[in-house]
Nucleic acid binder design. Structure first.
Length: 317
DNA sequence: CTTATTTGACCATA
DNA sequence: TATGGTCAAATAAG
């Protein structure tokens, strides 16, 4: 119990700030998608650059804020009594369901064919992936599935917007714990929210601990010492489209995506960013070696050779 | 009671 | 066929 320092005020404030920034960056990302209309050679470019800059600003600000949590200590008081800064991964509500798959026995409950699984996979949906310490994004999600994934020890959870049926919102996301760094999640968003977010996250998505239960039974046994964290920083790993190399079906989308990558590159961003390429696996693999501040774990692995995203504590002091 | 989560079955795609 | 995304009955939670 020597690890949790009672910094509450600034931490809480920072937490809110970061949350807002994350959201803002999310909006900027969405805006980016809306700009896919190639109206004019010049006009569109500037718009793209603008959005790219917005995104970059958000990302960098988040990085700084996040890092400051560790390095900075002169953030000045102004603290109220300790609020709920605890996010410890202590949950204690999950019981049962010990073994994942206990199939093959004597159950034959399927009388005839259900109507399950009759869905249309959306191949051409906009998809982007981020890595974050929290899965909270101020949207109301409802879990509709969980799957064991081949090369992961952690299951993948599937969420859809709570107001899917009320407002026809088609946003979904997938959340999966990163094996090299169980404090973080890979969150893949599919589609944008079309619902009114007036009601933000009602009552379900409020505590981070709640999410532990979402991510499977073994999700909460992770001993976090540095968990007093804000846990809100995230960064874009990459956008993906259905089939990158061979996808003859959607040229439009493919075009857009490549375009997208392009302008992000042109934004003076080192080739390290979008990297991620098709193998996110590679990206995360490095994170394990850095247990120092996992805040940068991902970053370092992404931008290991870039000075653009070089974080030095000295610049923070 | 209503609403959310769990969980295996079902199905599309590689 | 293997893998993973979704559905929906059963169950839990509020």
């Amino acid at each position: 119990m020597s690890i949790l320092f009672p910094r509450s005020s600034s931490a809480t404030k920072r937490k809110r700030v970061i949350r807002e920034l994350v959201q803002g960056r999310d909006y900027a990302t969405q805006l980016k998608f809306l700009l896919q209309k190639p109206i004019g050679p010049d006009g569109s470019v500037s718009a793209k650059e603008l959005v790219a800059n917005v995104l970059r600003s958000f990302t960098e600000t988040l990085s700084v804020l996040t890092s400051s949590e560790v390095a900075i200590s002169g953030d000045h008081h102004r603290d109220e009594v300790a609020q709920n800064l605890v996010i410890s991964g202590e949950d204690a509500s999950q019981v049962e369901s010990i073994d994942p798959r206990s199939e093959g026995s004597t159950e034959s409950k399927k009388g005839s064919k259900d109507r399950r699984g009759s869905y249309k996979r959306r191949k051409t949906e906009q998809t982007w992936t981020i890595v974050a310490q929290t899965t909270d994004d101020n949207h109301a999600w409802r879990k509709y599935g969980q799957k064991e994934i081949l090369n992961s020890q952690f299951p993948r959870s599937y969420f859809r917007c709570t107001r899917k049926f009320e407002q026809g919102c088609r946003a979904t996301k997938q959340v999966q714990r990163i094996q090299e760094n169980p404090d973080m999640y890979t969150i893949t968003y599919i589609g944008f929210h079309t619902c009114k977010d007036t009601l933000k996250a009602p009552q379900m998505v409020t505590h981070s601990e709640t999410w532990d239960s979402f991510l499977g039974p073994d999700a909460n046994d992770v001993p976090n010492e540095h968990d007093s964290t804000i846990g809100s920083q995230s960064l874009i790993v990459k956008q993906e489209y259905p089939n990158d190399e061979t996808d003859p079906s959607d040229l439009t989308d493919a075009n857009f995506w490549s375009d997208f990558k392009d302008f992000e590159l042109s934004n003076d961003k080192p080739a390290g960013l979008k990297i991620a390429s098709e193998n996110a696996d590679t990206v995360y693999s490095c994170t394990g070696s850095r247990s120092l501040d996992m805040d940068f774990g991902i970053f370092s692995s992404h931008f290991c050779s870039t000075e653009d995203f070089h974080f030095d504590e000295s610049q923070l002091l």
